[in-house]
């Protein structure tokens, strides 16, 4: 058995058993938040990492999922989880709407266009009464049935998030090995060369974005289900988009487990600064993000994945 497989199995076992081993609710909650962040960063990774199209507006899909679940609750009294398919449908429509024009832009221009689109949606949501305007929306104050999926313990959330994450990683693994994975890697390597080999660049970028948007939207729904509240800042704030990018880049964009690794590092760090500094810690979070951007961009654009590869190949060389 090679070292990658051992590390993967060990890592997944720790994640699966975490809430059973750790009894402190704070640490259990951090575990669930790690998985939630890993879902949205892994979803971003499909288009941002594999496809190399650095979207900094993915929060619109997250927001669509979060708002959809609380809108179906406030309007019709449905359980928030029932908003998931609606959030996904809205996200698919938004992705097609945003992707079709912006995919013609390259590099920084693409990223800036995605920021603009996301900010536009945030401002609209801040002024629309269906989305609760600036006040936001609340979930069920007390659970009416198990379908509300409202628990005081973070453990059920942990396993719900883990199931979604595993589904996403399995789909990503399938994609990575298929024609689509190769085509996305070719697009990341260079549009012009990819097109000369018959790769329909726009179409494949769109496929990746649609899949990515669906799962980002699911992450948004799961967030709203767990927290029971969403407002323009927590559901559509630009910081959430930035976080997806940073987590994926830190762990290794365009790798299967990179975003999960990034989440395992970043989320506890963020929770620790929040716990240590209380409300004033929000500022510290920005400083941490800034430092990570600097570190990744300056020293290791491939993220932890490259460091891991270097470490394991050195072991192999020593063994040989």
């Amino acid at each position: 058995m090679n070292i990658n497989r051992i590390a993967t199995i060990a890592g997944l076992l720790i994640i699966a058993l975490w809430p059973l081993v750790v009894h402190d609710v704070f640490y259990q909650r951090v575990g669930a938040l790690v998985l939630l962040a890993a879902i949205s960063a892994s979803a971003w990774n499909l288009i941002g990492g594999y496809g190399g199209q650095v979207s900094v507006g993915h929060v619109v899909y997250f927001g669509a999922g979060a708002y959809a679940s609380l809108i179906v609750f406030t309007r019709w009294g449905w359980p928030p989880l029932a908003g998931a398919p609606i959030g996904v449908a809205v996200s698919l429509a938004l992705a097609a709407l945003v992707g079709t024009p912006t995919f013609r832009l390259r590099g920084h221009y693409f990223s800036m266009a995605t920021i603009a689109a996301a900010e536009l949606v945030r401002i609209l949501a801040s002024n629309w009464d269906v989305t609760g305007a600036a006040v936001g929306l609340m979930g069920p104050p007390v659970p009416r049935s198990v379908w509300d999926f409202s628990f005081t313990s973070p453990v059920p959330y942990h396993y719900l998030f883990l199931a979604v994450l595993l589904l996403l990683l399995w789909l990503t693994w399938l994609m990575q090995r298929s024609k689509m994975g190769f085509y996305l890697a070719a697009i990341r390597g260079g549009d012009r060369a990819a097109r000369s080999l018959g790769v329909p660049v726009l179409r494949y970028k769109l496929y990746a974005l649609l899949l990515s948007a669906s799962f980002t939207s699911l992450a948004g729904t799961l967030y709203a289900v767990m927290v029971g509240f969403v407002d323009p800042e927590s559901g559509l704030g630009i910081l959430l988009s930035v976080k997806m990018v940073i987590i994926a880049a830190l762990g290794g964009a365009g790798t299967l487990f990179g975003p999960l690794v990034g989440a395992v590092i970043l989320v506890p760090l963020e929770e620790a600064t929040n716990a240590m500094f209380g409300g004033g810690g929000t500022g510290i979070t920005f400083i941490v993000y800034g430092a990570i951007i600097l570190f990744v961009a300056r020293f290791q654009p491939g993220g932890m994945a490259v460091i891991w590869r270097a470490l394991t190949s050195r072991r192999k060389n020593r063994a040989a």
């Binding site: 190769f182 890697a185 000369s196 018959g198 790769v199």
Partner: peptide, 29 residues
């Protein structure tokens, strides 16, 4: 891409290979 589908292929003056992929994966594309 329509040219490629019809059966016309090309190389570039300055080679643009997909750097992060292996040689075999480049050809698989």
């Amino acid at each position: 891409e329509q040219h490629a589908r019809l059966g016309m292929a090309r190389s570039f003056q300055v080679p643009v290979t997909f750097e992060d992929m292996s040689v075999a994966e480049n050809v698989m594309v």
